[in-house]
Design a protein around this nucleic acid. Structure first.
Lengths: 107, 107
DNA sequence: GCGCCATTTAGCGAAACTGCTAAATGGGCC
DNA sequence: GGCCCATTTAGCAGTTTCGCTAAATGGCGC
């Protein structure tokens, strides 16, 4: 799902909401970082193993990240690989942050 | 307050937490944007007037933003001016986002 | 000092979030 | 088919967040 956020400004704002909400939790930010430095793809198990909280809890965090479109899932047999959507993270947060850059620097 | 976040990594992570938590709420992001496009400084009244929610609610949002160090307060007589801390927003969020940039591009 | 104005603090109920344990799904293997 | 494995879904208590209304603070003008 994760709202395609094409040109529709309403959709884009919804997407922004979901993304910033997802980023609000330290564990979720860390999941993204972990993913990033492990090549951008890990199975759910690998991710859950490196976290203090229980399996299902991590699973829910992953679900939120997926709904925000920050990761996507690849079903490979009985494993599920989570893939970091770097472009989307960068596009959305970067675009928002750009509003605060000095004039004449937006893109 | 707003944690000076100098070199101490622990302090920096706390600061990051507060900042991303503050950014999680749409109203707070909008307050920042409004501030940015009105020259970076507005009185609390000016800000509250442009929002749907009640005065005290907005005041609390401002308090959170201040604790995160994203705005600072200047007391001028009986008015309070909120000043956008662009540098801090950019430094913290930008630095975090940079982890996801292509290799060899981090500053 | 008294009253007014701008703003914050206190206190409350409703809703959302987080973490857990227990049970369900769905694919692979014999 | 039957079983195990990886992972998700359900259901539940505790905490936090959000918005509100009502009351307090603190500066300014008379």
């Amino acid at each position: 799902m994760a709202a395609p956020d094409g040109g529709d400004p309403r959709a884009r704002i919804d997407a922004e909401d979901r993304i910033f909400a997802a980023l609000a939790h330290p564990s979720r930010r860390q999941i993204l970082l972990t993913l990033r430095f492990r090549g951008g793809r890990m199975t759910a198990g690998e991710i859950a193993d490196r976290f203090g909280c229980t399996w299902p809890t991590t699973s829910r965090h992953l679900g939120l990240l997926r709904q925000a479109g920050l990761v996507s899932v690849e079903r490979r047999g009985r494993e599920r690989a989570y893939v970091l959507e770097r472009a989307r993270l960068d596009a959305c947060v970067g675009r928002w942050l750009a509003w605060f850059a000095d004039e004449g620097e937006e893109e």
